[in-house]
Design a protein around this nucleic acid. Structure first.
Lengths: 152, 152
DNA sequence: CGCATATGGTTTCATGTGCAACTATTCAGT
DNA sequence: ACTGAATAGTTGCACATGAAACCATATGCG
């Protein structure tokens, strides 16, 4: 070790973007183990299923908006899921450009099996936080997101 | 919009992994604008520079540990940065396997210019939080990370 | 109607990334 | 000292991703 000190102190452990990224990465990795191994889903596919489970019927565009994923990425995830018959894609009668997506029976069955596992896992993850802290955490994150949104 | 309700309630807006990912993604994207456009650095390169700025002298291995980046990714970032003469790579006299990395004059100059911009930007980002809230936020994130670490 | 423009979604292409195999150096055990 | 295991880092390969070009349908305006 040299004795020289850095030119300016820039402590990355107190730098929010770095900490956020590190945590999100770890969380995402841990969560992925729940759906990758057993269900052979990648992140994009998981997200599409999660939103369809949550919202019941959506177009690819809406999923893009919800997940911040590129439309190409969503398109490819949808193709795979449709191929596996976990979702169906039906052109909207109103507008032939957009396709309404929804879970098939098999897709529903998968999610009904998977979601409780995910919830249990999440509960365990946030166990070190009180419910009040958890609420505050989400609230603060919301304010940060809002801040970024208004800048754009 | 359909009037149908989702089969089970799984509100992704209250699902921490999703919220974390979305926020980290937005933050990362905003931060990237600070170093991509003006300095032509990608995320990996920025991280390597940031750690070298912070720690002054490190090996690739140490950077891997700090940033959770794959060693191949670090290796390639280092190659580019060395090519641009922003860092130097010197085999350790003690152990020829490992290479000590440090910023060149040019690299230091770049960071001395860039870091204050980044800090200002971060300050603005977290402005909606009180300093106490910010402290708590980092603390909670730390506990969550710790929770994940002990599981592995 | 008919043409220009916008929009949802797909495909192509260039790039970045992770994994695994590989090289070079060091270390441990005999 | 010698052989085999470990470690730091690089490279080859296969794959996922984003940007941009593209296709099909819809909409606005003359």
């Amino acid at each position: 070790m040299t004795a020289e000190t850095p030119p300016t102190d820039f402590d990355l452990d107190h730098f929010l973007p770095y900490r956020l990224d590190r945590l999100a990465d770890r969380v995402s990795e841990a969560l992925a183990q729940l759906y990758e191994a057993h269900y052979d889903l990648n992140v994009a596919q998981w997200r599409v299923l999660a939103w369809l489970h949550h919202r019941h019927e959506l177009t690819a565009k809406q999923i893009c908006a919800s997940t911040r994923m590129d439309k190409a990425r969503v398109s490819r995830a949808v193709q795979v899921l449709e191929g596996r018959e976990l979702i169906v894609r039906r052109p909207s009668p109103r507008d032939q450009r957009l396709h309404e997506l929804r879970l098939t029976e098999a897709g529903q069955a998968l999610m009904i099996e998977l979601v409780p596992r995910v919830r249990t896992w999440e509960a365990e993850l946030v166990a070190p936080l009180t419910t009040d802290e958890y609420r505050r955490l989400l609230d603060m994150m919301g304010r940060l997101e809002h801040r970024l949104q208004e800048g754009e």
